[in-house]
Structures are given as structure tokens and as C-alpha cells.
Design a protein around this nucleic acid. Structure first.
Lengths: 240, 240
DNA sequence: GGCAGCAAAACTGTTGAACAATCTGGCTGC
DNA sequence: GCAGCCAGATTGTTCAACAGTTTTGCTGCC
């Protein structure tokens, strides 16, 4: 069966392929460092090599893969500086969003609260694999308070990059749950109009979150020797 | 005489083509609405149709062109909502940058001042076509104070979109000069550590700049009967 | 046994031609 | 004047080929 099952094809094939690959990457199915060989992938997805190439270029533009001339494409492995950069961007946008929250239209605030509720639901259901994503969706809806589609798009891409690090973290288990409680706290502070408190809480949140991801990335780069990707052909692709 | 003169080809051809086309677009050589027909362009640039197609996709990702299935690619014409969106993003990033300026490293502040000086030089030389670009470079270096490569990249793309509107403005003449004086004022306020004053000045600057661009875009969309997109907002009584 | 160096294989980057699907403009006929 | 249709133009996508580059593996030499 072609992995590119044609449910809805309202858009061109390259964007379909892009969506499939992006999903596989951020979901951890294609871990960082995995080479994306166009001939193999095009065969697997049932599209031409050129079409696949266009998709890979978009993923490159989104910062999810790296491309070296004549060496091909590979899933990006986040360096420590990438993480700090991403969190700089997060701080800028999310803190600005809190600042702007008093002027935000009510529906956007409602949507934000809905995302927190969804995350809490995931926690209650102990669906740990969904919790991280649900929490990030809250932060996405927080940035949406700024009211700019372009900033939303940028934040979405940035968060997708961050999930490159999440996917690596061996334990995506229960220790994600505390973050949701803090999401709730921040959300309530915003809704309560306590802007300064919300800012402080969010700042702390981001600092600690950054430290956690940074530790994970550094731990990961210690095991998987940095520049060396796949010493031989895909030997142990299974579970480790 | 291929327009794609091979000065330096350290990167793949698609990115070279992308750079050439981006330049032509933001420089106004290819005005908004211009259809970008791949067969003609690929012949003119001396690359294959597939290669050109990759370049067009990147430009699409950057928001400089629009692509409609089976209708091809055209240089984007900014709508009023695009302008307001872009200025929302500008306010968010530039005002955050002023906020962060006390912590910014000295070399970045120097670079910022250098950009203002360059703009002033362009004004003195009465090189009006260069003034707008030089001023935008100052704002780019302002955002650079935030210290995030990702935010820098996003801002660069956003500014390129804004230049779609600039290129349309018939008179890019002397009335751009006053903005540079205000750039200087904002720059000096930042260097002097007068953060609040800089914020206020920048806020006013962006408000007035937005109004100006907005007027230009609205005037432009009145003359060049816009594409049949968005019959909603404007009670478009198409002439003819 | 280890290593320099070379040849073969694998892969990428890019091209050109081909074809189906779709859009566009003009023509016919009423 | 207008509906409908036909033909050309253009797009979206595929396929096969080839040059250039990196990687691999082998050979022979010390």
C-alpha cells in the first residue's frame, strides 16, 4: 500500500508528500540523523524523484532537515545552540502575547483555554504520548493572541523543530504532566488579567523547559557521536 | 548571456535561481501580479523546468509568490490585511528588541548604528532608490539585538514581503528621507539607554509607516483591478 | 598486518522529453 | 448577444539518462 493514500488531494502532490514526511519526522518515526535518500523515498511514497525533491526542499526551508551539496538530505539533529535560539524566539513571542492579552478578542482567549483543557484531558487519560503535543498547542494558541498569521506560521515551524528534540527524549512519560498544570496556571492568570504574574510564571516555565530540553539534547549528542551519522547501512533501525 | 551568470556556485542551482528571482521581485523588476511561467523563465535563466519549479516553491514558502493549482505562479499582490499582519509582526519583534536592547552585546549595537549611518549616507547622496532598503536594514539590525537567528530569518522574509508594497509605490522619491531621521532618533535613544522613549518613538514610527503603506496598497489595488480573489471585503465594483 | 592508493558502486544534482489534466480564448451556431 | 464547444497553451508530474561527487571496497605494496 502506498503510504501516500489519497484521501484528499485538493493540493498538489509535493505538499502532500511534505506533510507526510513532516509528520513522520516530528513524530519521531524518522529520528534525527536519518538520511532521506530520494530514490528510496520516492519509491516508497509512490511519487517521482523530482516531486520528492520539492518536498525535501520545503522541509529544508522549515529547518527540519539539513542538505549538504552532493551529500543529500538528513533529518536535522538539534544542537544546543539551536535549542537556545528556539527558546529565545519562544520567549519573545509568548511573552509578547501575554503583554498583548488584555487587548485580545474573547474567542481567541476561549480557544486558548480549550487547548489547556484538551491537554488536561490527555493527562487524565494518561495518554502521555499526546500530552507534549497538546501542551505545545496551548502555547501555539497563546501566540495566536498576537493576531498575526505570519507570527503563527513562524511559531508553528519553530515548535516543529523543537519536537525534533522531544522525539529523542527516551522518556516521554509521566514527567510531562507537571507542565500541563503550569499551562493551566498561566492560562488562568491571563484570563484573570494578572498580566505581570502571568509573565513571571511563563518566564520561569520557559527557563526550566529550556534547561530540560537542553539536557536532553546534550545527553543525546553524547551517545550518538555528533557528526557521524549512520556508520554503516541502517543496521539497527529497530527499538533500542 | 545567461542571466544566471555563474560567479559563485557554491550552492545548488535551485537556490541560485531562487536568489535571482527574489531579487527581481523585491526590486520591483517583476511587479506584483506578474505571472511567472515556468517554461519561459527556465529558458531565460538557462535551467531546467524542474529546477525552476523548486525555486518557485521556495519563493512560495517565503510568501513572495502565490500558487494556484493548475493556474501557476504569480508575484504576490499584498492585500491590506497582509500589510496589517506584517506590521503586527514588526511591532512584536522590533518593540521586543528595544526591550532587550539593554542586554544586547555591544557589537550588535555598533552594527545597528552603522546601518543608520549607511542610510544617512544614501540620503546625502540623494540615492533615493537605495534609501528605503537601507532603512529596512537598520530595522533588521534592530531585531538582531534579540540574538535569535530564527527570528532574524523570519524578519528578513517578512521585510521582503513588505518590499512588494514598496516597489509598487510610484514615488519612491525624497519623501522617504524623513524616515531615516527618525531611524537615527530611535537608534540614539536606544544607545542612550532611554528605552521607554525609544519604544514610544518606534511605536509612532510603525503606526505612521503602516498607514502610509496601507494607503499605497489601497491606491494600487484600486487602479490595477485586483485578481478575482476576495470579492468579500471590498464591495468591489470592478471597473469594466 | 596495516596502509596508500585506485577502481567500482552508490548517490546526488540536473536535464530534457513526454503525457495527462486543466485552464483559456476564440469560434460557431443559434 | 449568448451558450456551448473546440483547440491551443500551460501546468503538474513522471521517467530515463548522464555528469559529478562521495563512499566503499579492493588490491598491492611496504
Amino acid at each position: 500500500m502506498s503510504t501516500l493514500n489519497g484521501a484528499a488531494a485538493a493540493a498538489g502532490r509535493p505538499v502532500l508528500v511534505t506533510d507526510v514526511l513532516r509528520e513522520r519526522i516530528v513524530e519521531g518515526e524518522l529520528p534525527p540523523g536519518t538520511p532521506l535518500r530520494d530514490v528510496a523515498l520516492s519509491a516508497e511514497l509512490g511519487v517521482s524523484r523530482n516531486t520528492l525533491r520539492e518536498a525535501l526542499r520545503t522541509l529544508h526551508d522549515e529547518g527540519l532537515v539539513v542538505q549538504q551539496l552532493h551529500k543529500g538530505t538528513a533529518v536535522k539533529t538539534l544542537a544546543a545552540e539551536d535549542v537556545t535560539d528556539i527558546y529565545l524566539a519562544r520567549r519573545t513571542l509568548e511573552l509578547s502575547a501575554v503583554d498583548a492579552s488584555p487587548l485580545a478578542p474573547e474567542p481567541l482567549l476561549d480557544a486558548m483555554e480549550a487547548k489547556v483543557a484538551a491537554a488536561e484531558l490527555a493527562v487524565d487519560a494518561e495518554a502521555w504520548d499526546k500530552v507534549g503535543t497538546a501542551s505545545l498547542r496551548f502555547h501555539q494558541s497563546l501566540v495566536a493572541l498576537l493576531g498575526s498569521a505570519r507570527l503563527d506560521g513562524f511559531f508553528r515551524v519553530t515548535i516543529a523543530q523543537l519536537r525534533l528534540a522531544f522525539a529523542v527524549m527516551a522518556d516521554q512519560g509521566a514527567f510531562q504532566a507537571p507542565w500541563v498544570a503550569r499551562d493551566r496556571e498561566i492560562c488562568d492568570l491571563i484570563r484573570g488579567g494578572r498580566r505581570m504574574d502571568a509573565t513571571a510564571a511563563l518566564r520561569l516555565y520557559l527557563d526550566e523547559s529550556e534547561r530540560m530540553v537542553l539536557d536532553a539534547v546534550r545527553a543525546g549528542s553524547r551517545t550518538t557521536s555528533t557528526t557521524r551519522t549512520t556508520p554503516t547501512t541502517t543496521a539497527a533501525k529497530g527499538k533500542r
